[in-house]
């Protein structure tokens, strides 16, 4: 019998959406965190809601925890707190 071994890929089911209230207000702020977001393994997609009052940072990830994101963003001096589910 053949066994199919599935690679540990980002299967759709494992992807979680994490959302944070931030003070990433301007395009410049977003530009500043952009390199951090792209070098962090595990961040599949990210964006900041620039047209809403909470400046929500939205992250799609398979394994990162909210604390990981908060650590990365606050390290460069921005506010970042998880929005309650």
């Amino acid at each position: 019998m053949q066994t199919i071994i599935k690679p540990a890929s980002y299967s759709e089911q494992n992807v979680q959406v994490l959302v944070f209230r931030t003070n990433l207000v301007s395009a410049k702020d977003i530009w500043r965190i952009s390199p951090l977001m792209s070098v962090t393994p595990g961040i599949l997609k990210w964006n900041v809601d620039q047209h809403d009052i909470d400046n929500v940072l939205r992250i799609e990830t398979a394994w990162l925890l909210p604390e990981d994101i908060i650590r990365i963003v606050t390290a460069v001096g921005y506010l970042c707190e998880e929005l309650p589910d």
């Binding site: 959406v17 959302v19 964006n47 900041v48 809601d49 620039q50 047209h51 809403d52 909470d54 929500v56 939205r58 929005l83 309650p84 589910d85």
Partner: peptide
């Protein structure tokens, strides 16, 4: 919750 909205939609736009 606001968090739920962001599951369905990327952002306000």
């Amino acid at each position: 919750s606001p968090a739920t909205l962001y599951i369905y939609y990327k952002d306000r736009d």
